[in-house]
Design a protein around this nucleic acid. Structure first.
Lengths: 120, 120
DNA sequence: TATGGTACGAACAAATATGTAAGTAATGGC
DNA sequence: GCCATTACTTACATATTTGTTCGTACCATA
C-alpha cells in the first residue's frame, strides 16, 4: 500500500505471486485480521464500532486499514450515513459470500491439521 | 520463528489468530512462496535444486526457510540421502494432499475475483 | 593437491506489517 | 461555549518478513 521501490526484487517477486490465481487469492485474505473480519460479517451488517468491539485487541488503525483493503478488493461494501456522530456500516459483497464455503472447508482442514501437529 | 518478546501485543494478537482454525490454516500456507512450493510438489517428489530451478527468483535462503516451515507444519516430507554431493528430496504429506481440492477452489475464486476487480 | 556440485547456514540489510499514542471534524444537547 | 460521541487520521515506534552476500561440509575425480 505504501510507496515502494518499483525495481526491488521484493516488488518483482510480489508480481510473481500476484500472477498466480491461488497465491493472489490468499494474498487478498491474508494478513492478521482480514479473515476474522470477513467471518464476523457473515450474514450481518456491522458498524465500525461494532467490529471494533468484536475484536478487543485490534487497534482502530488496523481495523481501518484492513477494512479499507477489503473494500478496495471488493470483498466488503462500505456505506456512510450523513449523520453526526457519523455512522458507517460494513457488509460482505457477493464475491465475499462466494468465498464462505471454501473458507469453511479450510477451517475444517485447519482443525484437523492442528490436532495432528499437536499430537506429536 | 525467531526469538520474540513474549509479552508484546504483537505476540498476544498472534495467539488470537492461531486459536481460530481458519486463520491458523491460512497462516500455515501464507507467506510468499509456500503455496507455490506446495503446488509444484503436487504428485511429484523433487530435489532442493529442482525446486530452486522451478522458481528462478526465489533465493536459496527463502527456499530453505519455507521448506523448513512446511516440514515443521507437517505439510512436506523431507528425505535425506547419504550421498555426496548431498541429495534431499521433498514430497507432499497426506495432510497436504487433502488440501489440494480446497486450493483448487480458492484458485478458481481468485481468478474470478481478479477479473471482477480488474474490470472496474 | 585442487576442483566441482549440492544443500544448506550465518551475518547483515531492506521492506513491509503491525502496534502506540494522540488528534480531528461535525453537531446536538447541556 | 463546552462536552460527548463516532469513525477515522497522522506521526512515530516496534516486530517480522524477505532479500543479499558470502561461506561451508562432504568426497569423488582430475
Amino acid at each position: 500500500m505504501a510507496t515502494r521501490k518499483i525495481n526491488s526484487t521484493y516488488t518483482r517477486n510480489e508480481s510473481t505471486i500476484i500472477e498466480c490465481d491461488l497465491t493472489y487469492a490468499v494474498y487478498m485474505i491474508g494478513g492478521r485480521w482480514k479473515l476474522l473480519i470477513l467471518s464476523k460479517l457473515e450474514g450481518k451488517t456491522l458498524r465500525f464500532g461494532e467490529l471494533k468491539k468484536a475484536f478487543p485487541y485490534i487497534t482502530e488503525r488496523m481495523l481501518t486499514l484492513q477494512l479499507k483493503a477489503l473494500e478496495q478488493d471488493g470483498l466488503v461494501k462500505r456505506t456512510v450515513y450523513a449523520e453526526v456522530p457519523p455512522r458507517v456500516e460494513y457488509e460482505l459483497t457477493e464475491v465475499a459470500r462466494e468465498l464462505e464455503p471454501i473458507l469453511k472447508m479450510l477451517s475444517t482442514w485447519g482443525n484437523k491439521q492442528r490436532s495432528m501437529t499437536t499430537m506429536k
